[in-house]
C-alpha cells in the first residue's frame, strides 16, 4: 500500500475501485503505456495504482498509414488505428510479464463487432494477472466498430451487457467518447448495461492542416486530440457524468493530465481514479511525480484520506 509520509503524518493514498484495493488512484491510460513492458526502464510499474493496456483486438491490427501523429499547441492528434499485437500474441508474449506485476492491470478491448469484443473478453476472463477490462467503444480512428458503438445509447447498453456477461467475475469499465451531445446519456446507458465503472474521456476528433500542401497532415485525415488542450473539457465531462451516475458507479478521469493539480481537479470533479496519457510521452515517469504531488495536496488541505476529495466540488 502506498502512504505518503509528510510532517510525521501519514496520508492514506489507497483507493477502492470496482472491488479492487489500489495503492493509489493513479493509472496510465490505454495506448500510452504499451502493455506495461516498455516503461519499466523508466519507472516502477508496481508503484502505480495500475495501468490500462493498449487496445487488444481479436486479430492483430497493422493500424493506419503514417503520419499517425501530429503535435498541435498544447496537445497532439493521433490516428494510430488500434495497431496492436492481437489476442493470441498478447496471451503468449505479454501476459506472462503482466502476471509478474503486483499493480492493477486493465485490458482495453476493441473490435468491429460485438462478437469480437466478447471473444477477447471470454478468452481473458479467467486470467489471474488481469484485474479487469476497459471497453473501448470510443476510438475515433477506425472505420468499423469503435466510436460507432459509443455514440448510440442503445448500442452502448447492448455491447456493455454482452461483454459483461463474458467477463466472469472481472470488473468492466466502459470508456466513453466525448463526441456526443450529452455524455450523461451514454453514461446511463453503460450503467444500464451493467458497467462496473466508467472511464472518460477518449480523444476528441480533430484535424491539422498543412497549409503548404493544403492537405491534412495525418494520413487518416483526422485524428483524436489529447493532451493539456483537452483538460478543461474533460474535467467538465467527468463532473457531468459524476452528477448523473456518480451514485451508481465510480469514474476513472482522464484527458490532458500532466501534473498533480490536474489530477486533483479530476478527483474534485468526481473521479475516483485518474489516468495519465499523453504526458507520459514527454516525461515517462510523470505519473510518479503526480502520485507524490497528490500526497502533498492532501497534506496541505489536511485531508487524511484521499477518498475525501472525490466529487467534493462545491
Amino acid at each position: 500500500m502506498w502512504y505518503s509520509v509528510a510532517n510525521d503524518k501519514i496520508y492514506d493514498m489507497s483507493v477502492d475501485f470496482v472491488g479492487l484495493r489500489l495503492a493509489n488512484p493513479v493509472f496510465l491510460a490505454s495506448g500510452t503505456c504499451g502493455y506495461g513492458d516498455e516503461l519499466s526502464d523508466f519507472l516502477d510499474m508496481n508503484a502505480l495504482g495500475g495501468f490500462v493496456t493498449k487496445s487488444i483486438t481479436l486479430k492483430p491490427r497493422k493500424g493506419n498509414p503514417t503520419p499517425r501523429i501530429v503535435e498541435t499547441s498544447s496537445g497532439m492528434l493521433n490516428a494510430i488505428g488500434l495497431a496492436n499485437v492481437g489476442l493470441d500474441c498478447f496471451v503468449e508474449e505479454k501476459l506472462p510479464m503482466i502476471e509478474g506485476l503486483s499493480t492493477a492491470v486493465f485490458v482495453n478491448v476493441a473490435g468491429e463487432t460485438i462478437d469480437d469484443y466478447v471473444a477477447v473478453v471470454e478468452r481473458l476472463a479467467g486470467e489471474k494477472g488481469i484485474s479487469g477490462f476497459e471497453l473501448n467503444i470510443s476510438c475515433p480512428n477506425v472505420k468499423h466498430g469503435g466510436i460507432t458503438f459509443g455514440t448510440d445509447p442503445a448500442q452502448i447498453e447492448e455491447i456493455t451487457r454482452a461483454v459483461k456477461a463474458a467477463s466472469g467475475d472481472k470488473p468492466l469499465m466502459v470508456k466513453l467518447t466525448p463526441a456526443v451531445t450529452d455524455i450523461a446519456v451514454s453514461a446511463q446507458a453503460a450503467v444500464n448495461g451493467g458497467a462496473d465503472a466508467l472511464s472518460l474521456v477518449n480523444t476528441f476528433t480533430a484535424m491539422v492542416i498543412d497549409i503548404e500542401d493544403q492537405r491534412p497532415v495525418l494520413a487518416n485525415r483526422t485524428g483524436g486530440l489529447s493532451g493539456p488542450a483537452i483538460k478543461p473539457m474533460a474535467v467538465y465531462l467527468v463532473n457531468r457524468v459524476f452528477q448523473a451516475v456518480g451514485g451508481q458507479v465510480p469514474i476513472m478521469g482522464l484527458g490532458g493530465i500532466a501534473t498533480a493539480s490536474d489530477a486533483v481537479e479530476f478527483m474534485i470533479a468526481g473521479a475516483t481514479t485518474i489516468a495519465v496519457g499523453t504526458a507520459t510521452f514527454a516525461q515517462p515517469d510523470c505519473a510518479m511525480a503526480i502520485i507524490e504531488g497528490i500526497g502533498q495536496y492532501c497534506r496541505k488541505k489536511g485531508v487524511s484520506n484521499i477518498k475525501e476529495i472525490v466529487g467534493c466540488l462545491q
Binding site: 500510452t32 497493422k62 493500424g63
Partner: peptide, 8 residues
C-alpha cells in the same frame, strides 16, 4: 520508446 505506435 515504444509506447505510442506512431512511428510505423
Amino acid at each position: 520508446i515504444g509506447l505510442c505506435q506512431s512511428c510505423a
